[in-house]
Design a binder for these strands. Sequence first.
DNA 1: CGTGAGGTTGACTTCGGTCAACGTTTGTGG
DNA 2: CCACAAACGTTGACCGAAGTCAACCTCACG
Lengths: 225, 225
Amino acid sequence: MNTDIDQLDQIVNHKPKLEKGEQLYRAGEKFTSVYAIRSGLVKVVSIQGSGDEIIHGFYLPGDVVGFDGIAQAQYAMTAIAVSHTSLCEIPYSELSHLAEKVPKLNTHLYEIMSRKINDSYYQAQLLAIKSAEERLAGFLWHMMERFRVRGYIYTEFDLPILHREVANYLGLTPETVSRLLTKMHKSGVLTWKKKHISIHDIPALEILAGFNKEGSCSQACAKGL
Amino acid sequence: MNTDIDQLDQIVNHKPKLEKGEQLYRAGEKFTSVYAIRSGLVKVVSIQGSGDEIIHGFYLPGDVVGFDGIAQAQYAMTAIAVSHTSLCEIPYSELSHLAEKVPKLNTHLYEIMSRKINDSYYQAQLLAIKSAEERLAGFLWHMMERFRVRGYIYTEFDLPILHREVANYLGLTPETVSRLLTKMHKSGVLTWKKKHISIHDIPALEILAGFNKEGSCSQACAKGL
DNA sequence: CGTGAGGTTGACTTCGGTCAACGTTTGTGG
DNA sequence: CCACAAACGTTGACCGAAGTCAACCTCACG
């Protein structure tokens, strides 16, 4: 077991930190590696001809980005550091070579990718859910949950992303996000000031996210991610 | 090469056909197999406590469903046959066992899963795109493209799904879908009558889907799926 | 300081959802 | 094979949630 980890360690390159706004990889570039995030925050986007971007996901420490590149041997998306970020580069050729000798690694990779598939199902669900309030509440609840399962403090955390970016991710406008945050703040559910989030009333947040009316399924589903 | 295929053939169970409406697997069930679709159409949904479903994807012959189950050793979604469907069951334990001996199989599986990840990125993009018209046009264009890359006739094809289901998938209402289809029909872009689609004006469809204003990226990206 | 990016708030508009009535197709049983 | 029912599809009138536009505020940073 430990030797497996050791072998993995040998192929990992510890990349220097990325500054805010720097690109990790660009859509269309040759696919070479996946990256494990050690600290910071990365957003994965696709960039339209008009220049604006569509945000497909935010990735926290412990997440792995770059799997979008496997299918076509080139990255399908662009990954950008949202804050100062340090990461590990894992060259794919060496990874798959190693995986041939360590079946457990394959199993693990399948799990990661399967989880990503379920993740995007969850996002699709967020977007298909009607109201803006449910989307935003659902998004914030999901972020909270991600901190929780990682064993971090989850009622208070930093989220160094702009309202504009959340709006983009949820298919809303910054104005709507702002209005909803004001509303949630006034009703004592949570506060988001200066890139810091404090959750005050988790049950209320879950109600806003629409968990109650859908029964336990949605919440349980989301929790699994 | 051929022997690899032979080995794969040995672990595949050729399931009898599924009737319309029958479930292939249910969310929460123990994960055992993935399924390759031979003919017909399968939808993958999550079912809410309220009883209604959220449709996450439609799968055509040649697609493989069931990867949602890997992450947690149980299916995260429910798969339902939309029309009479025949498929191959591929037991996952035997698949991963075989993959240990045939590295190429792993590579292939990674590609399939990576493609699925990109697929759901594309759906998220559809949902995040503002207008109902762009969503519907984008959806229809994408279906057409899927027939095209499979080498089928792609300006005429059967799509045995209800308006209600497309609406659900796109986060719209059946009424809106109906109105838009009427509009597209009148303007000579395409016709969808009796579960049969005829595309008359592909460039017009692409404009409706918003490909022009986003430059080549979105279209190229979607094509890769 | 001043400047510019981001956030907030308000007035107005619009797209698409809702509700309801009606038309059409499908499938079933007599 | 027809008749009926139920599900699906279409169309219209209306309404509300969220987008747009604009003005103003706040804060970080040079």
